[in-house]
């Protein structure tokens, strides 16, 4: 066969494959949205769920998901920032660093069930935290740490060494250079990574079933004192998230509209993840423009 024809055939195949992947996603998202969107209403988003009568909503689950996400980020971001700085700026090239990198990789490929059970036995049972948001947030931190750390490291490494040299030449300490020069430069990448990771954390269920629990305790949205048990901000109450809710109503739900609630919740979840993705892109670009002179 003529080389030109081969070329054409091969390139077309590649395009078809890429097209197929888009079709798969379009099918998945389309299916979820078509089944779920009709059930989403203001009432659905703002009323509490029902155990066995129709017409329940997902207000608690929606709030819990976001709150859990914020707590997870509060815990995991400082740690992964520190770890990312270590790997990119301080890590010596030796076996110790190798082991650390390996540890991070392993943490990221741990099955979520194992992390959930570990969290259950250690935090829920051993430390007597009970099924609580905080136990869930720590379990989710285990997932988020490797993702965020790798992301911070990559973002820092993509900053040119000239910047580092410039900082050091000004007499700044290495640490100061990292904080004042390198991190602002790497910020768009870091922010994008955080938001993308957030999407992933948002959909996690297996690790939360045994840590944050599967019941949405009654929340009083007028009470914002975190030490009150009914407050939305209380972190020692059990909290069912959207993903766990989907899992639960599909496995033991006996409300007559279980299928509809499940479809609606899935659609909400997908929309939130979609928003995360698009805003990550938007924020990343915007920050990039702000911190560099590009685009002005």
């Amino acid at each position: 066969m003529n080389m030109k024809t081969v070329n054409k055939v091969a390139l077309t195949t590649i395009k078809i494959i890429a097209g197929l992947v888009v079709v798969i996603l379009a099918f998945l998202i389309g299916r979820i949205l078509i089944q779920g969107l009709p059930h989403i209403s203001w009432h659905f988003l703002t009323s509490p769920s029902q155990e066995f009568i129709a017409g329940g909503g997902i207000s608690y689950q929606l709030f819990n998901s976001f709150y859990l996400l914020i707590l997870t980020l509060l815990i995991s971001f400082p740690i992964s920032l520190g770890a990312g700085i270590f790997l990119s700026e301080y890590a010596p090239k030796n076996w110790f660093t190798e082991i650390i990198r390996m540890a991070i990789e392993i943490l990221s490929s741990l099955p979520s069930v194992v992390v959930g059970l570990f969290g259950f036995l250690l935090f829920v049972v051993q430390f007597k935290m009970g099924f609580s948001i905080i136990a869930g947030a720590i379990a989710l931190t285990f997932f988020n740490l490797p993702l965020l750390t790798r992301n911070v490291e990559q973002a820092l490494e993509s900053v040119s060494d000239l910047q580092r040299e410039a900082g050091l030449a000004l007499g700044l300490s290495k640490w100061k250079t990292v904080i004042k020069v390198i991190i602002p430069e790497a910020l768009p990448g870091i922010v994008t990574g955080i938001v993308l990771g957030a999407g992933r954390v948002f959909g996690e269920a297996a690790a939360l079933i045994y840590t944050a629990g599967q019941s949405a305790s009654t929340i009083d949205f007028t009470n914002w004192n975190p030490f009150n048990a009914a407050s939305p901000l209380n972190w020692s109450r059990p909290a069912e998230t959207l993903a766990v809710h989907i899992w639960k109503i599909n496995s033991e739900g006996i409300m007559p509209d279980a299928a509809a609630v499940s479809a609606g919740t899935s659609a909400v979840l997908i929309i939130v993840v979609l928003i995360f993705n698009l805003s990550a892109r938007y924020l990343g670009n915007k920050l990039y423009r702000k911190y560099t002179a590009a685009g002005k």
């Binding site: 509060l74 815990i75 430390f127 935290m129 905080i134 720590i138 019941s215 030490f227 020692s236 033991e252």
Partner: peptide, 30 residues
Amino acid sequence: AMFFILMGCSSNTKDAPKSIQIVGSSAMQP
């Protein structure tokens, strides 16, 4: 973060009527 963790550990104990924790069969949960 530390503060949150500490609170998570301690705030279980001081509610006025002792809270009741029930765990088990998922079929009985509803």
